[in-house]
Amino acid sequence: MNIYSVKDKLKKLIWVGSIVFALALILLPLYLLIKYSISDASSINTGGAPIPLWPYHPTLKCYKYLFSDTQFYNVLSNSLIIALLTVIISMILGVPAAYVLGKYKLPGRHLLILGLISVRLFPDIASVIPIAEFFIKLRLHNTYTSIVLAHSLLALPYVIFIGMSAFESIPLDLEQQARVMGAKGFTIFFRVLFPLAMPGLAAAAIYTFLLSWDEFIFAYFLLGLGKITTLTLFLKQKLAYSPPQNLLATISVILSVPVIIFSLLLQKYMAAGITTGSVK
């Protein structure tokens, strides 16, 4: 037609191309990971021929292998236990703190928050050395205690931060109403505030769980030479010994499962949470 519609079409082409490129950039690697986890040996050791984009004989062999191994179950349950314990401790410590910070306008509040978050300003790899030495001194190295305490340390600032905004968003009137009706401190907390802050606190708990489940650095330094193995540690150990790639991929996929489950759950919850929040 005229020069302008040509330019227009070109712009549209670049635009669509960019979206496709970006989506591929993100989704392709994930697809490949899953593909490798269901690949058979011939699809991996092709001896020069290009590795297929879809395995020649897709199989769940690796999954079966792992799930028939009692050691693997051990590893899984370790990660699970540690994550759950971390959530419990972080929430017990963090939620009351979040409540106080969210409800009361203390003087120097910002400074206090900064101080509490400041432990996270240290690089993980830098703070793991002193903490490891500390636990060794207390003879807590290679124990569940050390790793749970360390993970709680990492998660606590987030629990406080997220919990704080969850409590802040509850209208003051509700609390005062409950007080007028005769409820005392704890009752108010448990039966009024806690349920209302639930979406935010649930998010904090989920975040903590994932943080612990996915955590590698502290697990490596605190448990690396001992008997307790977490899933991340397990993966690393396998990486050190020239392992079959499908096994690596399978472990990786299993490691990623909680994230996927929680993301899907969170998406639904978030959508609901946003509407209830905006009613305020």
Partner: peptide
């Protein structure tokens, strides 16, 4: 502010240890 104290002690304690 007493509910705040355990968490604060925990975090600041570790900060000092580190």
């Amino acid at each position: 502010i007493w509910p705040l104290i355990p968490a604060a002690a925990y975090l600041i304690g570790f900060l000092i240890i580190i």
